[in-house]
Each structure stands twice: as C-alpha cells, then as structure tokens.
Design a protein around this nucleic acid. Structure first.
Lengths: 205, 205
DNA sequence: TATTTTTGATTGACCCATCAATCAATAAAA
DNA sequence: TTTTATTGATTGATGGGTCAATCAAAAATA
C-alpha cells in the first residue's frame, strides 16, 4: 500500500472528511475517530499529520476560506462595471456549494468556536473584512465613501443573516431568493442616494 | 441549611448560571460542574432538579425565548402606529441585554446546537416565526402582503446577521448603529414602494 | 539482477483526563 | 418520623493523544 508522497493526499482527504463530518453533525465536537474513519485512515494517522485536533480544524477552516476567496476572485475577474461586481460578490456568497446546508452548518460551528479560539476568530475576521472591503471597493465608485461603508455593512449583515436562517431550515430560503433580497438592498440604497441628487428632491406628502 | 421551597430558587439560579457560563465560554460544551459551581450548588443537585444536562439546556433556551417575548410584548404595547411598532420590534432586538456579547454567544451556541437537536431547532424556529410575523403584522398595514413578507424576511436576516457580526467582535457594531441600519432598511423599502404610486414614477436618466 | 538498508506510511493498544449520571448518606425542616 | 434538600463519592463511557511495532516501497549496494 504505502507509496511515497501520501502526505498531501492524506492531508487533503482528512480536511475534506473533517468538513463533511462537521457539516453532518453541525459541531466541532466531532471525534478524530469520526474524521479519520470518513477519510479511511486510523485516528493515529490524523494525529501524525496534523499534530492535534485543533490544528486539523484550523487547516479545515483555512481551506474553506481559501475556496471562498478563489471563487470571489474568479467571479470578479468576469465582471467589469462596479454594479456588476457587487452582484458577482453576492452571487458567490449564495452559490450552490457555499449555501449547502452542510457547509453552512460548518460555518456556524466555526463561528461558535471563534468565541473560544482566538485563532479561529482571527480567520473569520479576515473573511468578514474581505467581504466588506470587496463591497466597499465597488460601492465607492457609485457613492460616497461613507455611504459605501454603511451599505457594505448592511449587505454583509444580510448575507450572514440569510445564512443563519438557512441553517435553521425554517422558511424556505432559496439561494435565488437570498440573492435577490441582497441585491435589492444594494439597488434600493443606490436609488435612494441618486434620487437625492435629482432635481426634485422630495415626494408628495 | 435546607430551607423548604428551594426548588424554584435553585432552578432559576441554575438556569441563570447556565446562561452565564455558556455566554462566557461560547459553547454548550460546558460541564454541569461549571454550571453548578456558578450557581453555588453541587453538580448532583443540578441533576436532581433537571434530570439531565439536556433538559437544563432546554430550559435555558426557553428562558431566553420567554424573556425576549416579554420584552417584545411590552415594547409593542407602547407603540400605536404600524411604523412605530416596527421600530419597537427592532429596538428590542438590539437592546442592551440582548445585544451583550455573552448573550449573543449563547444564542450562537444554541443555533449551532439546533443542527443536532430537533428540540432546540424547534424552539429557534418559533423565535424566527414570531419575529417574522410581528414584522409582517405591522408591515401589512403599510404595503401589500407580498411586500410585507419580503421586507420582513430581509429585516429578520439583517438582524440575525448583525448579531453574528457583533459576536465576531470585528468592526465596532454598536447597538445604535445596528438599529439605525435595520430601521433604514425598512424606511428605504417603504419609500421605494410609495414612490412607485406617486404621480411621477421615474427619475432623470 | 539480487540483496540489503533505509525511510515514509500506518496502525492497534494503551494511558489519562474529563464528564454525565447515579446513589447512598446526611441534615434540616415539617 | 417523614419529607425535602443537599452532597461526596463513585462509575461507566468517551475521547484526545502517545508509542512501539509493522509493512512496503525505494534507494543503495553487491
């Protein structure tokens, strides 16, 4: 069996397995045995490659983050206009794999973990900042910096909130409806701002 | 030591303690010992009154929910106009005790638990439904039922999302800013709808 | 090519700590 | 005395982490 160069293969398999198990059980309180079994290896091997459960979990969230960034970069490359870029960012957040119940369950578990683990918190803050600054970059081309900040904050919150509600599984929050809701929020804000600069600045009482 | 009629006192103390410990540690993986110690009793007594850890936790989330409902009812009694009632609902969501980091950490932990525990999920769904229907009730007096639904969905998502972002502790999300952001979302939507029914239904290109 | 050596890959068995849950015993009211 | 309140001691189960040992491919050597 033992061919050389198994390390990267095993690491990847274990991270994948961790993601699956965490997503299934909806918690980080999964055992190394669970993860190892899913990956088809012994618990000892998981320790051998990752040193500790904590490090395996850290690698796992890093993987999630990396994936999300790649998707975002790709989506942004295909969009030129600021308004289109914003929609692209939103679309990535709700794309199939990200919005899958297991993935969301995993995210939720990591958010909860961030209350205890400074390392986890730092990683999630990176995600939050990245989303925010991506939004602000494009928004700035459409409104003032202040407004851009405010709108970005609201948009990010709405995205995160839709995730949570999806996690609960109440009210059939589809990916499409979520996208539309978030995109409308952007449109609404921009419209409101532009109507202020129009000749008529009020409406009938 | 043993006075009679201690049961309600102990139950309440244990639920309070559970809330504190869960909030501090940001997880439901707290020990009965932790909770009991905080409440100033032995772990055995906690089992005596609640039977199991799971039941104590269920009681704890019920307590949270009850508290939130009472606050909401009270806030709604003081508000007459639909638009004011909406603001009141929003205000309750971000009031001091609800928006405290420990409280949010506890909520987050329960959301995570809902992935596993059907009982917990059901309780959280109740909260979600209540928030939604409270919003819809007032919104319906200001717009169509369809729009009311949509706006309520967006508002609820934004509230939940602001909670999460607060939990992360990134970007100083104050309670006031959160309220304003959410309330603006309502205003923006209602304005957009009303402007559609105005005589002039467009703006300069 | 055949043989030996080396090294990465892998695991079963074990240790130790933690924790939920139980129970028998004690102490104070009623 | 009967009931209620309370706890210390105990236990069975679980899970992270360690370690010595095994196995097989690859590399070096004859």
């Amino acid at each position: 069996m033992p061919k050389i160069g198994m390390e990267p293969v095993r690491r990847r398999a274990l991270v994948d397995a961790a993601l699956q198990v965490i997503g299934d059980q909806g918690t980080l309180s999964v055992t190394m045995s669970d993860i190892a079994r899913k990956a088809g290896v012994s618990p000892a091997l998981a320790h051998h490659y990752f040193g500790s459960k904590e490090q395996l979990l850290t690698e796992t969230i890093r993987f999630l983050l990396r994936q999300l960034r790649q998707d975002t970069v790709r989506a942004l490359q295909a969009a030129e206009l600021p308004r289109d870029r914003i929609s692209a960012i939103i679309r990535v957040s709700f794309q199939a794999d990200q919005f899958a119940p297991e993935t969301i369950a995993a995210w939720l578990a990591f958010y909860s973990e961030a209350q205890r683990s400074e390392a986890t918190r730092r990683l999630l803050v990176i995600y939050a900042r990245r989303l925010h600054s991506n939004l602000v970059d494009s928004l700035k081309r459409l409104c003032s910096a202040d407004d851009a900040h405010r709108i970005a904050e609201g948009t990010a919150a709405m995205i995160d909130g839709l995730y949570i509600r999806r996690a609960l599984g109440s009210s059939p929050v589809t990916a499409e409806a979520s996208m539309r809701l978030t995109d409308d929020y952007i449109t609404l804000n921009l419209q409101a701002l532009s109507s202020l600069t129009d000749t008529d600045k009020g409406h009938a009482a």
